[in-house]
Structures are given as structure tokens and as C-alpha cells.
Design a protein around this nucleic acid. Sequence first.
DNA 1: ACAAAAGTGTTCGTGCTACACCCATGG
DNA 2: CCATGGGTGTAGCACGAACACTTTTGT
Lengths: 242, 242
Amino acid sequence: MPDSNTAHEVLTVVFQVRHFDEHERAGRRSDAGHSAPELAVLLWQRALDPQRGAWSLPGGALGPTEDLTTSARRQLAEKVDVRELHHLEQLSVFSDPVRVPGTRTIASTYLGLVPVTSDPRIPDDTAWHPVAELPDMAFDHRVMIEHARARLAAKLSYTNIAFALAPDGFTMSELRDIYCAALGYQVDTTNLQRVLTRRGVIGSTGETARSGPGGGRPAAVHRFIDHALRVTDEFAALRPPN
Amino acid sequence: MPDSNTAHEVLTVVFQVRHFDEHERAGRRSDAGHSAPELAVLLWQRALDPQRGAWSLPGGALGPTEDLTTSARRQLAEKVDVRELHHLEQLSVFSDPVRVPGTRTIASTYLGLVPVTSDPRIPDDTAWHPVAELPDMAFDHRVMIEHARARLAAKLSYTNIAFALAPDGFTMSELRDIYCAALGYQVDTTNLQRVLTRRGVIGSTGETARSGPGGGRPAAVHRFIDHALRVTDEFAALRPPN
DNA sequence: ACAAAAGTGTTCGTGCTACACCCATGG
DNA sequence: CCATGGGTGTAGCACGAACACTTTTGT
């Protein structure tokens, strides 16, 4: 009996660092006055029961001839331009038999990252939400987002994964804002630059950016050396002998 | 149509650090003359086609009312006493539509750890194999073992995961042998002790072990403080400010 | 006494943080 | 010339690697 009563779905936590307008979200600006960017997740609102009105992660049923990664990309193509998805990796599987009502459904979750520069057209039932204040979430989707966020934060410190969130060229201030948004705490610009250059993760293009209104020294433009995930701090301790 | 033609199986990479007899495995002894322990994986040999005679990871079909972790434990109960399984964690999912012939089967893989002290009775078709020289492996099981080994090696350096491989009480030499076997390279006993005590991972019981034949100072007996997985080196860089 | 194994102390290098100080631009 | 923001220098700390040295046992 190869057939079963079990369905398999793929759900992707898509993150992007975004600015949210002040009039949308009162009383949330940095000291300097300009709004600080925040880590956002892409969600769609359920139009039908169960859990009508609650927000869900994008995704859907796994097709019979596709693997999980292909399925995740296919499903996201309806919500986000696939070319904008600079990183996609597998997270964990949620297999509680009663995690959703009806047919028993196993969910494989993915982490997807979109750079700040892209602003893909998204359907009407879909929106970016700051991870700091999530709406009512359907089923077990909230904990999936928490897992994804923890994974992202961890990898920011020992891989070059930020390449998938940053634009092609950027100033160190812009990159610091991205790290702050993704990590949820303040990061020192000076040390960020030193750590990433020492590890060979970023480098300087020759160019310089124009200084903003009110002056200030023009910033050097940097870029990520690699555009694929690389581990840059493999063993903090117990590393192999020379 | 909730029914599907897709099956779901759970496969577990069970590791244990074991001694292999010299007459079984010629020419593999340390300088001192006593055989060094090695990292071993539990496999069973297929009696039926396809891939008859090749070796497989233990596991099987996911039951309709159990989650993945429960299923892994249940399947292993036939091979290994469950009480001996001191750690079990999810690895990745293998979802290539043609990864096995016949019904499309998705495999969720797990990492399981058994302490050196236990020697569970295992069925006749089942055996421990050193990971350094695996036999002919069925399907995609070889790469699953490689994933598991990489995960174990990584976690040994930034978590207390070795508690699941070590006995209740141990000397630092015994613990070093476990780390050497699992990592595949030499580890310095002195520094291992310092790293793990500073992190609060291990501590000294008052006791001392008897010295072996040929003398030598009796060793202090140590133990792991926690018996659940704990991350001990979360941020190597970019850690939050004070 | 001697060998063997365990434990301790010391030196060194490295990677990260924090903070002070210098540079370039717009007004 | 001054405010604003970018960049550089430096001191200090915490961690881990390597290795010499001391301690405690058995024969």
C-alpha cells in the first residue's frame, strides 16, 4: 500500500529588510529622526476557513515530480519574482499529526532571503510584516518564523549570508543598518567592517557615494566578494592542528 | 484529493564511539599499541531487492498518527534499546522524486547518539561499521551519513553534545579519545579540559580512577553538568553589546 | 630509581570590542 | 569655520594552542 493519507507541503519564511512608513507605524523612529529599517516577513491572509483572516506563510502542496527546493521556488514565483530570491535553505520539518485540521499534512520549512533593493509586486492578499509585531498567525506558522529568525541571526555571525540581504554596492552604514535590523540589536560599524574584511567577505570597490544633505564625508562603496553561502568561522574552538 | 502517491520514511544515523578488535581490522592501532576507538554507525544489510546486499540506515515508514521524532524512536527500538539513545535531532530532508525506485518516498533524516558504555543487543542483519570505511551503501544513504558526521563535528565545538557520547563519569583521557574519534583528528587533552570547564560544560566529581598497569598518576573523574543539548559558544563575532 | 600517565603553569598569537582621534564634505 | 558623518589607530581583553614542567602512581 504505497498510497497514504498524508500530504506534504512546503512553507517558506521570506525575509527582507524594509523601511516602514511612519504614518503606518507611529512612534517608531531612530534618534536621528529617519525611520530605521526593520526585518520583514512575507505573509498572505487566509480568505477561507479554517483560520479565515489569519496570516500564513507562502507555500503549498509538494508536486509529485518536484523536490522540495524546486517546489518552494515554484510556489514563491506567484508571490515574489524568483530572480529576487538570493538565498534559499531548508529549515526543519513540522510533523505533528494534528498540526492542521483535516488531512494529516507534513510541513517542510524553508528560509528565503530577498535583498533590500528589490520591491517585487505582490498580490492583494499578501503583505510584508515587521517580525517584531506579527499579526494573528495561522496554525504553527509563528514558531516557524521564530526558527527562521534564529537561524538567520546565527548564520550572520559565522557565514557571509548577508550577501543575500544587501544590495550589490553599499556603504558600511547601510550594511550596518541591515545587520541591526536582522539581529535586533546595535552593531558597531567600525568593527563590522573589520570583521568582514578580515574574513574576506566584503571588499571595497573604488567608488565613493555622495554625502547626504547636511554634509559628512562621502562613504566608500563596498561589495560582497562571494554571492553563494560560505562558512567563514567554522571552528571557534577545537579546530584541527596545523 | 488528500491522498497521494508519496510515502514518507524516517532514517536515523546512529553514532557510537566503539573499539574494533584488531583481528577484525588488521593494521589499525595507535602508536601505544592499544587500538584507538573509532566513530561507528549502525547499519543493516538488505535481504531483498532492490539493492540486495547493500547496507541501509535503520528506519522505515512514518506511521499515520506519530510525528517524526516518535517514529524514529519507535523504529530504533527494534535495533537499539531506546533508553540508550541519549540524543536525537533532526537533520535534513531528501526529496528527490527518483531517490529510490518505486513509490516516490521522501526521507527525513535524524542524528542519534549512543554512549560508549552501552552495548545493545542488535539483530543478526545489523552491525556497527566504522565511518572511515563504509561498505556498499544503498540509495543515497552514504551522503546522509556524511551530513550527520559534519553536523556532529560542528556541534562538538560549540555545544555540549558530547554528553550523549560519553559515559556518566570519565577521565579526561577517555573524553579526549571520544573527541578524537568523532572529529577525526588529534585533540589536546589539556586544552580540551580548559575549554570545557571554562564553559561550564564539565566538572570534576570528587573521585579518582585507578591508574592502569604500568603506573601513572590516577586520573580525576569528570562528568557533564547538563544532559540536554546546550549551545555554549553562541556568537563568535557580532555578539550583542553589554 | 624509573617509566608512565595526569595535571599545572607559562607563553604566545589571534580575534574582537571599545573608544579616542583624524579626515572630508555641505552649509 | 563648524556641524555631520566616514574612516583609522590603539589599547585591552578573552580565548585558545602549544609546550615545558611538576605530581602521583606502578613495577
